[in-house]
Design a protein around this nucleic acid. Structure first.
Lengths: 181, 181
DNA sequence: GTCTATATAGCGATAGAC
DNA sequence: GTCTATCGCTATATAGAC
């Protein structure tokens, strides 16, 4: 619960970055150590195995989501608008953690997949009071998933075919009209 | 254009299956050969490199999508309903090919990513005449993406938290009300 | 806590027999 | 057209010096 060592965070940062920008296959212990500016041995002092490193990333994500759910519930523009707005990748810490964890999940990491599932459940729970019915909730969740999916496919930096700016505002308005309580 | 050798198809089947069920990392030449019931040398006779094998899968997908777009345009229940219905994973050949190719794309395969992008464009093009405006088209595409995303996260066989049956019908009705021309 | 050196295993790919 | 054997490389992980 106390503040984690700086080197640990630096290593997770590097791992996250590699996952997002070069995919799961490129995110090796070797490459991560190099990108973090430590030796492989140094990395393995902090994370005793690759599994532990992946676990560190999932843990980071879990903490970030907790904050996000709280912010969503309290958002002045309404939970739905907040949720959809933050579903397009703006390269925030939470976006990066989600993207990286999704790569892990698709690489076969069970814990990563379960974490993402649990996060989705938490969001749905927080949104339920703000939607007309279960169908409306499904709609909001799926549009958000769609936005994330496109981010995940377009290698992190390349913008996907996802609506931005005015088009995004129009889309959110349309979803709210169809779904808001 | 003529009928491809049977062994080739068997190898792609096995590769596809491994990608879907165990992730990109597990879908090695070795494992693919074993699953297809041939030796590694035998596999390499049909596909001279891993890149060629991946290309074979993308090619299969491209052919399947061509049929699908035609079917969508001609669908009696309307293009939007057809499109969304077929966006939930029913383990059809095209679903499997898309899922497997998505794994490849996230593993860093450029051609796979481009193929998926192109497929999305083809679908959008076919749907445009059936939607009110660009915002409505965005909505339909993103709900579909969301359905696929959930399939991709839930390892192929495990059903995701995606609406099915009556819930799916209600969702499609809601989207159509909001988007249909 | 961080390093170098090394063990061990699995990858894609080649060579050549059948 | 399919096989076995093997090469060269890179991955994770260990051992032990500093």
């Amino acid at each position: 619960m106390s503040r984690p060592p700086l080197a640990r965070e630096k290593v997770i940062d590097a791992f996250e970055q590699l996952l997002i920008e070069e995919g799961e296959r490129a995110a090796t212990m070797d490459a991560t150590a190099r990108a973090a500016g430590v030796s492989k041995g140094g990395l393995l002092y902090h994370f005793g195995s690759k599994d532990a490193l992946e676990g560190g990333l999932v843990e980071r994500l879990t903490a970030l989501v907790e904050e996000d759910v709280a912010a969503m519930t309290a958002a002045p523009e309404g939970a739905i608008a907040y949720f959809l707005h933050t579903s397009v990748n703006s390269n925030d810490p939470i976006d990066r953690a989600i993207l990286a964890t999704a790569r892990l999940a698709q690489g076969g990491n069970i814990a990563a997949g379960e974490a993402l599932r649990s996060i989705r459940d938490q969001w749905a729970e927080a949104l339920r009071p703000h939607t007309k019915d279960e169908t409306a909730l499904d709609l909001v969740m799926l549009v958000s998933d769609g936005l994330y999916f496109n981010n995940a496919l377009s290698g992190g930096s390349i913008p996907g075919p996802v609506p931005r700016g005015e088009a995004l505002r129009a889309l959110i308005a349309l979803v709210e009209r169809a779904a808001r309580v």
